[in-house]
Design a binder for these strands. Structure first.
Lengths: 125, 125
DNA sequence: CGTATTGTCCCAATGTAATAGTACAAGTGC
DNA sequence: GCACTTGTACTATTACATTGGGACAATACG
């Protein structure tokens, strides 16, 4: 299973990519509460990344209450709901997200109407 | 003028954020060919960033043929069209962009239909 | 010409990211 | 008990990003 995505060529550090990737998978429901994540060593192999890097991400996510680890068993998604940022922040950060999304897509030569179309296609899945 | 955005708290390096920010502004037409960018030192002050960091971004963008610099004068947007990646890449990278966009928005608690709405609002500007 | 402006270059110092390798701790299951 | 799996911890090393400061080069301007 090709769970998460990291790009070692990206300027964004691997740990940050993996962190976001896991959080996003949980937030979208791809990863349900109770699901077991790949082991530290296994995921390190799958992503072609050092085990320490994976371990640190798991540790951090556990500190944040998003994962739960049991030694000798594995790491699991907690069933606690993710805390939501305050409304004002949400709005502001969404604007920033949209701004970046449009900008990045423009770099690829895509226009706004095309993006709307593509996003609507995603809805039908 | 609040030209570009960088967040020194972000794990993504400042130079990468600024690079993307400038490219995006040009790609979307916010920055037209011939426009003068802020001076290295000025932008460094505006963004609360070291001048060397800004200078390296300008230098790199000039090497890529996106900017044009004249000593004692300033740095300007070139009027050459930006080279487009191959079609296959475009599609693939767009998928990745969308995937990340949806994931990041989910972290803020936004659902796909909401994103479509917001994007359509952007069209009316 | 002299001065200010702008980009360019270099150096030293600091902090962070990532890798590699090894060892340990706490559980599972035979 | 014993072997195995899993997470955790540590050290050392390499590379990169960023900062601060200083100096230089080319151009504009009076």
């Amino acid at each position: 299973m090709a769970y998460f995505h990291v790009d070692s060529a990206s300027p964004t550090p691997i740990y940050a990519q993996l962190d976001r990737s896991i959080r996003a998978a949980i937030a979208t429901g791809e990863l349900e509460p109770g699901t077991q994540l790949p082991t530290v060593r296994q995921l390190a192999v799958d992503l072609a990344v050092n085990a320490n890097t994976v371990a640190r991400v798991y540790t951090q996510l556990e500190r944040d209450g998003i994962l739960e680890t049991r030694r000798g068993v594995g790491t699991f998604v907690r069933d606690l709901p993710l805390p939501q940022p305050a409304r004002a922040r949400r709005e502001r950060e969404l604007r920033e997200l949209i701004r970046r999304f449009i900008g990045d897509a423009a770099l690829l030569g895509f226009t706004l109407p095309e993006l709307v179309d593509q996003l609507r296609n995603e809805e039908k899945k």
